[in-house]
């Protein structure tokens, strides 16, 4: 599988909803359309709600991965301002 180039990474481990999405949204505002953001988190509910909210806001979810017992990464591509 083709590697995804990551333009920005944030670590929001320890945060719960809605701040997981607040931080993720602020981070995606800071990158350009077409660039990708990788979010590292440990709040399980957010591993489902962030992809849904990002898609509702018009962005593209490239990958959601459970990387160990506690953590997930979500990779999002910014599709619009």
């Amino acid at each position: 599988m083709e590697d995804i180039k990551i333009d920005k990474r944030i670590n929001i481990k320890g945060l719960i909803c809605p701040y997981t999405f607040v931080k993720s949204k602020l981070a995606i505002e800071d990158i350009e359309v077409g660039e990708t953001l990788e979010i590292l988190l440990d709040y399980e509910e957010a591993s489902r709600s962030i992809p849904k909210s990002m898609e509702d806001h018009g962005h593209k979810i490239l990958k959601v991965e459970k990387i160990n017992d506690t953590d997930w990464t979500i990779t999002v591509r910014k599709e619009k301002e």
């Binding site: 809605p18 999405f21 607040v22 949204k25 602020l26 505002e29 909210s53 509702d56 806001h57 018009g58």
Partner: peptide
Amino acid sequence: IILPEVGGK
């Protein structure tokens, strides 16, 4: 901030 019409900006 989580509203699409508002956001951080």
